[in-house]
């Protein structure tokens, strides 16, 4: 039972992170390999704001979430915008470089020590019993809820709003979309903002649950196989992929060796890439477009 609960929590965490990869990839075919660092940045922002607004933890949290949104927007406008029209792989390399840059800056600003935003916010994280001797932490429960709400919201957004429609159009044929008067840069900027928003949220929840340190980048990187297994341009795929990767990881930890947990997602990834490179729910044509 406890295993099952852990599985759901891990799936929620991966899903929350991997939707950031999907959002950007779907719209611009760029894989943002700085996502782990951006996640961490969100968590650090929460820590700083929490120290600033000692009295209002809710305010600090809301502020950090808002700032994460802004970070993505700014990043697109000052950096990634220059890469539109360049080779996709060049843009991916830029995100790798961005990741290094961010990591350096974060160590400079916040040092490499492990931080615990939850104690600064003054919140508690009591375990929630689920019956049958199983329990998960309150933050983990919140993570599951946030993931569900976020995915529902995003799916509705893509399905029913004009911005969502424009994002889908741009994702398929950016040039044609531009010709039809859709503001490409605005759409891309929105995708980046939403991506850092969801990533930042994931980072904050993760930091609230288990502290804030350099391992977060690895968690971010591990969520990327989840996005790819499901199909990089599908939100539903990201959920399913997260579940598969989480399941494989938990099984491996239980039956093989806890040390292996960092590798399992990548083994799943390779298996998937060799069998069905475009993922479970992805569009097949993508592979040839690289």
């Amino acid at each position: 039972m406890q295993v099952l609960a852990n599985l759901v929590v891990l799936t929620a965490i991966y899903a929350l992170i991997s939707c950031g990869y999907v959002l950007i990839y779907r719209v611009s075919r760029v894989l943002n390999l700085a996502h782990g660092e951006l996640m961490m940045l969100g968590a650090y922002l929460l820590f700083t704001l929490a120290s600033l607004f000692k009295g209002g933890p809710e305010l600090a949290f809301a502020g950090a979430v808002g700032l994460s949104l802004l970070v993505g927007f700014v990043l697109y406008v000052v950096l990634m915008r220059k890469m539109t029209g360049e080779l996709v792989i060049a843009a991916v390399l830029v995100t790798i470089a961005l990741g290094i840059l961010l990591r350096g800056l974060m160590v400079l600003i916040w040092t490499a020590r492990d931080l615990h935003p939850i104690s600064v916010l003054g919140w508690k994280n009591p375990p929630v019993p689920l019956g049958g001797g199983t329990s998960i932490s309150s933050v983990a429960l919140a993570t599951i809820l946030v993931a569900v709400v976020l995915y529902l919201a995003l799916m509705l957004f893509f399905r029913y709003t004009r911005w969502g429609l424009q994002m889908r159009a741009v994702g398929e044929r950016p040039l044609l979309a531009a010709q039809r008067g859709i503001k490409l840069h605005a759409v891309y900027a929105l995708a980046w903002a939403l991506s850092t928003f969801s990533g930042g949220l994931a980072g904050m929840l993760l930091a609230l649950d288990s502290g804030l340190g350099s391992t977060m980048v690895i968690v971010g990187l591990k969520a990327f196989p989840a996005a790819l297994v499901g199909g990089l341009d599908s939100l539903l795929g990201a959920v399913v992929g997260s579940f598969i990767v989480a399941a494989a990881e938990i099984l491996a930890i239980h039956f093989i060796d806890p040390l292996i947990s960092d590798v399992v997602p990548f083994v799943v990834l390779i298996a998937m890439l060799l069998v069905r490179p475009w993922g479970l729910f992805g569009t097949k044509e993508e592979i040839e477009r690289v």
Binding site: L228, V263, F266, V267, I270, L273
Partner: peptide, 28 residues
């Protein structure tokens, strides 16, 4: 081997995954 099926980004990702496996084997 993956390069026979995959190009560009996907290939890069596969080799990245292989890196983790080699690193794991070394750590082990």
């Amino acid at each position: 081997l993956p390069s026979l099926r995959l190009k560009g980004l996907y290939l890069a990702v596969t080799t990245l995954a292989l890196h983790f496996i080699v690193a794991y084997a070394g750590g082990e």
